[in-house]
Design a protein around this nucleic acid. Structure first.
Lengths: 277, 277
DNA sequence: AGGTTTCATTTCATGCATGAAATGAACGCC
DNA sequence: GGCGTTCATTTCATGCATGAAATGAAACCT
């Protein structure tokens, strides 16, 4: 057996067998069964080319070679004792997720899948139409409609987003118009002309108007197609079609807690696109 | 994850990943696949509660925590380098097996199963009726008709041995009598009376006489019943019935080579008894 | 912009290490 | 001597860690 491939974990188990003077006590200490320990000790004797134990009816007794190895293993065990620190308890990682109105709404529906039983994170969902600065840590995770170009940011493409009008039926003609600074809001401003318009200052009010039968709302198809009580009343708008990205700061990929959260947010978003297209 | 259960082998793999600056080179060095290494590094990060790597498109880069751990692991790796010595090559263990005539004959038939491809042992089969002193290492393994009582000897019961007369047919009347110092030889001396006797000074000559049709031979049933050309021509002799034991010195149980040989001899003998009874 | 290469991660099938159960051995007690 | 206990080892079924294959991402080249 080549040195590089010998299982170091057999050393840890060896120490437990030596301390317990046999397999029975070591089995309790390590959570491995006695048959497994028996085999692993034979593996270790083969790897070292030495007889480490006398196998007696009442248990295992170290040989001189075994005593020497035990000393070496307890020394390295002590040296390793500082590396197995669990993360500080009660110290949650704040994970700021920024998304627009429609994505925020969806993430709220799926928050159980994002947080679950993970008590090492504290999620703050920042619902805003403007783009927060991830490189300055205004957000940790961003849902974006552009690929990240900024240095130090990493992006994962989630899917494609299209816009269309939605209403309770085709007879509804007025447009609900959001007056903010988004591509879809700008499109509405450019194409409204002399149409009957109802202006709102928050995107969710467009949806309210549509559901009330008062106006058509320009919504992402992944949102409108899932909304009961509404139907699509136009073709999709080519100008507004684009990709959706999950953006993270490179440095934050190193925290297991953040990695897990990123993965779960990504999964949730991918599900949305997968079930839609 | 509790410290006692953390897998030390992850540390060995960690060093390989750190040296190879990623999973691809470490996979070649360790013989583990990249997916496995990826999972094991995540396991280790969980056990330590630290981010050990930056995961980049071109591979893995150690964090400061990772650098610290790498230093510690290479130190312990160096400390362990002397324990993985393979056994000295070309140095065979001499395994002296002592048995009486009939068991020696049988073991010779089964020597392939005992030695096989095991080139770490050299078997010396000592065929003798007298009992060699295992505690003084005249023999390493003994096939005995008594349970070992001597301190430091360990015995494993193989089976039961019975004696009966064998001949080519019931019409053969002379007895072949071995003049040595065994229980069956003594029994023959006590019961021969005025019978026609042919004396021999070696047990195998009794068999020769029987096969030649010149005499009856008192043989263990496990021997006589297997001998083509002979049939049992008497009931078994109660006085001569007894157990057969495999006896080893306790100290010799620690050598893997001897252990293996003991196990194989035991298996071969058990087969004999199992197929017979 | 499209294609190729290299790397890591995910998905899925399966080999093998593991543990439950059975077995064997030794010891102690009645 | 028979029975019970404790321990280790063997046998057999199976859960899970592993690796093959697929997938995704980034970088580089044309």
């Amino acid at each position: 057996m080549h040195e590089m491939n010998a299982n170091w974990d057999d050393l840890r188990l060896f120490a437990a067998v030596a301390r317990g003077h046999g397999l029975a006590k070591a089995s309790k200490a390590t959570g491995k069964s006695a048959p497994t320990l028996s085999r692993r000790m034979l593996d270790l004797e083969r790897a070292t080319g030495r007889e480490l134990f006398r196998r007696l009816p009442k248990g295992y007794e170290l040989t001189a070679d075994g005593e020497a190895l035990f000393e070496k293993v307890t020394t390295l065990e002590a040296g390793l004792s500082t590396i197995w620190n669990p993360p500080a308890r009660g110290k949650r990682t704040l994970v700021k997720i920024s998304a627009g109105t429609w994505m925020s709404k969806y993430l709220c529906e799926k928050m159980d899948a994002i947080v679950g039983s993970d008590d090492s994170i504290l999620v703050r969902l920042i619902s805003a139409e403007e783009v927060l600065d991830i490189s300055r840590r205004q957000a940790i995770i961003g849902i974006r409609n552009h690929r990240p170009h900024q240095r130090g940011l990493a992006g994962r493409r989630v899917g494609r987003v299209r816009f269309a009008f939605y209403a309770i039926n085709k007879d509804v003609n007025p447009w609900a118009r959001y007056t903010g600074n988004t591509p879809s809001a700008e499109w509405l401003g450019k194409h409204a002309d002399e149409r009957e318009i109802i202006e709102v200052t928050h995107p969710r009010n467009m949806l309210d108007l549509a559901l009330a039968g008062s106006a058509r709302a320009l919504l992402p198809t992944i949102v409108g197609d899932r909304q009961s009580g509404l139907m699509r009343v136009s073709e999709t708008i080519d100008e507004l079609e684009g990709d959706q990205w999950l953006v993270v700061h490179d440095d934050d990929r190193f925290s297991p807690a953040i990695r897990r959260t990123v993965d779960r947010v990504f999964d949730v978003l991918r599900d949305l696109h997968r079930n839609h297209s």
